[in-house]
Simulated scan of single mutants.
Amino acid sequence: MPPIHPDQRVAVLADARNLYHSSHSVYSRNVDYASLLEAAVYDRKLVRAIAYVVRAHAPEEETFFEALEDIGFETKIKELKTYSDGTKKADWDVGLSLDAVTLGRHVDAVVLCTGDGDFSRLCSHLRHEGTRVEVMGFRQSTATELIEAADSFVDLSERTDRFLL
């Protein structure tokens, strides 16, 4: 795959729920999305930045969504579903994957900000189509198969001073 250069067009797709759970389980801290976006773009041409979030009707949730938009992310919001047996579910795997495949045709690189191994097949597909795939996540909670499927991996744990609030 080609190296990173300033003329590359890039799309940044952030799995906010995965990043939240990873940063809280390991560090009990929040992700600095401004620093995340800046590092993901890396002096290239940002085409689109999307944060995939779940509305769970928690305090400060709307403030967080607005902050993401102020930083430069478009937010895609899914409602948390509660099933009759009490289980709760809301994930963006299909939506994020469809956006990545669609955007992959219009950019040189897709940056996936997640540790979810379910996206390893997506990485392989995008790379096969000629799109560079970069993954940013916390090593302790990033699936090995996702790291191996990407062109590059940025371990957010190596720079907690930059990537955590």
Rank of each mutant, 00 (worst) to 15 (best):
Val133Met: 10
Ile77Glu: 07
His128Ser: 12
Ala56Gln: 05
Asp108Trp: 03
Asp85Thr: 04
His106Arg: 12
His106Cys: 06
Leu68Gly: 00
Leu96Ala: 06
Arg55Asn: 14
Glu74Ala: 07
Leu98Gly: 07
Glu62Phe: 12
Ser120Val: 07
Ile50Trp: 00
Phe119Gly: 01
Lys76Arg: 14
Asp91Gly: 14
His128Met: 08
Asp118Pro: 05
Glu61Phe: 04
Pro59Tyr: 12
Glu74Asp: 08
Phe73Ala: 03
Leu112Met: 13
Ala51Phe: 11
His57Glu: 15
His57Val: 13
Cys123Trp: 11
Gly130Trp: 03
Thr82Arg: 12
Glu66Ala: 10
Leu126Tyr: 06
Asp99Met: 06
Phe138Val: 08
Ile50Val: 14
Asp118Leu: 07
Val54Tyr: 00
Glu69Lys: 11
Asp85His: 04
Lys88Ser: 11
Asp43Leu: 14
Glu129Ala: 02
Gly86Leu: 15
Cys123Val: 06
Leu122Gly: 01
Lys88Tyr: 04
Thr63Asn: 10
Phe138Met: 10
Arg132Pro: 01
His57Ala: 15
Thr63Gly: 06
Glu69Ile: 07
Thr87Arg: 15
Arg132Asn: 10
Val107His: 02
Phe138Lys: 06
Pro59Asp: 15
Leu103Asp: 03
Ala58Pro: 01
Val47Met: 02
Ser124Ile: 04
Ala90Val: 10
His128Thr: 12
Phe64His: 11
Glu61Ala: 07
Thr87Pro: 00
Val110Asp: 01
Asp43Arg: 15
Val53Ile: 10
Arg121His: 09
Asp85Arg: 03
Leu122His: 02
Thr63Ala: 14
Pro59Thr: 13
Trp92Lys: 01
Ala100Thr: 13
Arg132His: 10
Gly117Ile: 00
Lys89Asn: 08
His128Cys: 05
Asp116Gly: 00
Val111Ser: 01
Ala51His: 08
Ser97Glu: 09
Leu68Cys: 03
Trp92Asn: 03
Leu98Met: 14
Glu61Pro: 05
Ala49Val: 05
Leu96His: 02
Asp99Tyr: 03
Arg132Asp: 09
Glu79Ala: 09
Lys78Asp: 10
Lys81Pro: 00
Phe65His: 11
Cys113Val: 15
Ala40Val: 04
Arg105Glu: 12
Lys45Thr: 11
Gly104Phe: 04
Ala51Pro: 09
His106Lys: 12
Phe138Trp: 15
Thr102Ala: 15
Ser124Asn: 04
Leu98Asp: 11
Met136Phe: 12
Val110Cys: 00
Arg55His: 10
Arg105Ser: 08
Asp93Leu: 04
Val94Pro: 03
Leu103Gly: 04
Leu46Cys: 08
Thr63Ser: 13
Arg132Met: 12
Val53Ala: 07
Ala56Gly: 01
Ser124Phe: 05
Tyr42Arg: 14
Val133Leu: 11
Lys89Thr: 06
Gly117Ser: 07
Phe65Gly: 01
Lys88Gly: 06
Lys81Asn: 09
Asp116Ile: 01
Tyr42Ile: 03
Arg55Gly: 05
Asp116Gln: 03
Thr82Leu: 08
Val47Ser: 00
Leu98Ser: 07
